[in-house]
Amino acid sequence: MILANNKKAYFDYFVEDTIEAGIELVGSEVKSAKAGKVSIKEAFVRIINGEVFIMGMSIVPWQYGSVYNPEEKRVRKLLLNKKEIKKFHEKVTQKGYTIVPLNVHLSKGYVKVDIALGRGKKTYDKRESIAKKDQKRDMDRMLKVR
């Protein structure tokens, strides 16, 4: 079940390698995330000292929580194996690559995030993807009329 989706990721980046990671959540964040009060529109991923963190991810505080509700846009640690972190770190050090969150979803009751290795698109690449999307929309419209 998808809780949040980053539609701009596929428009702004060539997505090459994806991986599912767990998120280290605190207290009532889990309830709020399962209720779908998550946004990853401004989120990005950084590797700091061999650990992976997602920054800018917004989880609205649980309305029935106490005064100890965690901050909405705090930095959250992602749970990955050392081998996976090393593979992503090697690619990110190359020019033009970045790690992008694609979606937040539930997997066997746990809140997970799909992150991807992305290479930034140029403006002409974006125009090309818009043209392909328009062609597909026109084809679907034509098939629907028939």
Rank of each mutant, 00 (worst) to 15 (best):
I19G: 06
I19H: 06
G22P: 13
G22M: 15
I23M: 04
I23C: 03
E24L: 05
L25I: 13
L25R: 13
L25G: 15
S28C: 09
K31H: 07
A35S: 08
G36W: 07
V38K: 00
I40C: 09
E42R: 00
E42Y: 08
F44Y: 05
I48H: 13
I48T: 14
V52Q: 10
V52A: 05
F53I: 08
F53L: 02
M55P: 13
M55K: 13
G56K: 02
G56H: 02
G56R: 01
M57S: 03
I59R: 06
W62G: 02
Y64P: 13
Y64M: 10
G65F: 12
S66E: 11
V67G: 15
Y68N: 07
Y68C: 09
E71W: 07
K73I: 09
K77E: 01
K77Q: 02
K77H: 10
L79Y: 00
L79C: 08
K82F: 15
K82P: 03
K83H: 01
E84H: 00
E84K: 05
K87N: 14
F88K: 01
Q94F: 03
G96I: 13
Y97A: 10
T98P: 12
T98W: 05
V100D: 02
P101A: 05
L102M: 03
L102H: 03
L102A: 06
N103L: 01
L106S: 08
S107N: 06
S107G: 03
K108Y: 06
K108A: 03
Y110A: 15
V111L: 12
K112H: 00
D114G: 14
I115D: 14
I115S: 12
K122Y: 14
Y124L: 14
D125V: 05
